[in-house]
Amino acid sequence: MSSMDAAKSRISIRLNQQQLELIDRTLKGGLAESREELLHLALKEYAAKREGAARG
């Protein structure tokens, strides 16, 4: 659901073992401490890149 009612909303992401392996290997690079933290980082950087591009 895309409700924004709650202060915090939860999203369940289904990932297979290969996708999780890629995430875990990415974590070894030191970008984040956990899978969840990496997902948060990805959202922020993804959005920042596009918003930066939109601003020119």
Binding site: M4, K8, R10, I11, S12, R14, N16, L39, L43
Partner: peptide, 20 residues
């Protein structure tokens, strides 16, 4: 085999997510 990862987004993150 898939498994679920659950993350919590605060209001600002949720807004970012909805934008993209």
């Amino acid at each position: 085999v898939e498994e679920e990862i659950v993350i919590e987004l605060d209001a600002a993150e949720r807004a970012l997510f909805e934008d993209h």
